[in-house]
């Protein structure tokens, strides 16, 4: 069993513990659930601001990744998969980014999550940055897709913390729609 992460002496605790994950699609293969789970690797878990920086400072910036890759930041105990109990009734806000914006947007997004800027109780599950050929995609996942007050608040906070142009298109998708 994995040891639980705890803040060290003098460190600033986070409201929740989180894990970073990394996944990379093997070119040409269909993404079945099994291969998705096999392709996703947990990088590490952290409980404090300082522990977060120790991981993050050594990670490649999303804008420097090549190929079909994703970084995931999820609360400890939640797998970055639709099938996880915390996610199965949930959904995600999706923002498509032109190339060159992913690194800055991803950093602003995860700092807002870790700092509890969304003010939606326990609703946030995690976030993903997906590096693709022509554009990059960031998404933030929450527990209850049917809770419109929560999803609206997440959308408004996203606009503020990402400092997005007013015409940026944001799309909400429930995970059950994504499975279909």
């Amino acid at each position: 069993r994995r040891k639980m992460a705890v803040p060290g002496a003098g460190e600033h605790p986070l409201q929740f513990n989180y894990s970073f994950w990394y996944s990379r699609r093997t070119p040409g293969r269909p993404a079945s659930t099994q291969s998705y789970e096999q392709n996703i690797k947990q990088i590490g878990t952290f409980a404090s601001v300082e522990q977060f920086w120790r991981f993050y400072s050594h990670m490649i910036r999303p804008g420097d990744l090549t190929g079909h890759s994703d970084f995931h930041l999820f609360k400890d105990g939640i797998k970055p998969m639709w099938e996880d109990d915390a996610n199965k009734m949930g959904g995600k806000w999706i923002i498509r980014l032109r190339k060159g914006l992913a690194s800055r947007c991803w950093e602003n997004l995860i700092l807002a999550i870790l700092g509890e800027q969304f003010m939606v109780g326990e609703e946030i599950c995690g976030a993903v940055v997906s590096v693709r050929f022509q554009e990059d995609i960031i998404s933030i996942w929450n527990k209850t897709a049917s809770d419109q007050a929560t999803t609206a608040r997440i959308r408004d906070t996203l606009r503020r913390v990402l400092n997005l142009p007013p015409n940026t298109i944001m799309e909400y998708k429930t995970h059950t729609d994504s499975i279909k």
Partner: peptide, 21 residues
């Protein structure tokens, strides 16, 4: 209970702490 809230600037400042290395 209380929530532990940090703004972006505070989190970025923590990056320079020796504990963050």
């Amino acid at each position: 209970g209380t929530r532990i809230i940090y703004d972006r600037k505070f989190l970025l400042d923590c990056r320079n702490s020796p504990l963050a290395r």
